[in-house]
């Protein structure tokens, strides 16, 4: 039973503190893995991969998957709903105070501060994910190509994911 309480608290925290969309939840998931050991880093990167190729918001999908790994279907439900719950409260409050809210000094200060913090969180995750790949020439070339592709034109995340998956399958088949 206690595991559901922990799941609820941890994923509720993600809903409150993550900022910048789906991939911004990943730093918290690493932290959870380190603290509780519900899943390994390797499993987490696999979960993120799966969450990226299934329909629905990535941040929610990866919560569903992590909850499932931790405590079965009920765990998946708890993680998914508790990550969205803070948004529910926020949206109701903000809808009522729409203009007043976004003009409030402290709200603006908080949002302006969350941006650089969010960049730092994501950078630290990128560093963590890159470390084991640094010695792998294939990985570095693919990453380089993806970043060059993104340089000039914005494409949907699905574009990068599909290209990379195809490259991965081809490499596995022929090399």
């Amino acid at each position: 039973m206690i595991i559901f309480a922990y799941l609820f608290i941890e994923f509720f925290k993600i809903g409150v503190f993550s900022f910048g969309g789906g991939y911004a939840t990943i730093p918290f998931l690493y932290q959870i893995s380190e603290t509780y050991g519900w899943y390994s880093f390797r499993e987490l990167s696999q979960m993120t991969a799966v969450a990226s190729i299934t329909p629905g918001p990535v941040g929610i999908n990866v919560a569903t998957y992590a909850g499932l790994k931790t405590a079965g279907i009920l765990g998946a439900m708890v993680a998914t709903v508790s990550e969205m719950l803070p948004s529910l409260f926020l949206v109701i409050i903000v809808s009522k105070l729409l203009r007043k809210f976004s003009d409030n000094f402290y709200v603006k200060a908080m949002i302006e501060t969350l941006k650089p913090i969010s960049c730092a969180l994501l950078t630290s995750v990128a560093v963590g994910l890159l470390k084991p790949e640094l010695g792998n020439i294939k990985s570095m070339i693919l990453l380089g190509v993806l970043l060059i592709l993104s340089w000039k034109t914005k494409k949907t995340p699905l574009f990068y994911i599909l290209i990379s998956a195809i490259v991965g399958v081809i490499l596995a088949l022929f090399i």
Partner: peptide
Amino acid sequence: GVGIAVIAL
């Protein structure tokens, strides 16, 4: 491949 794409994303 998807793992590398996630790093890029």
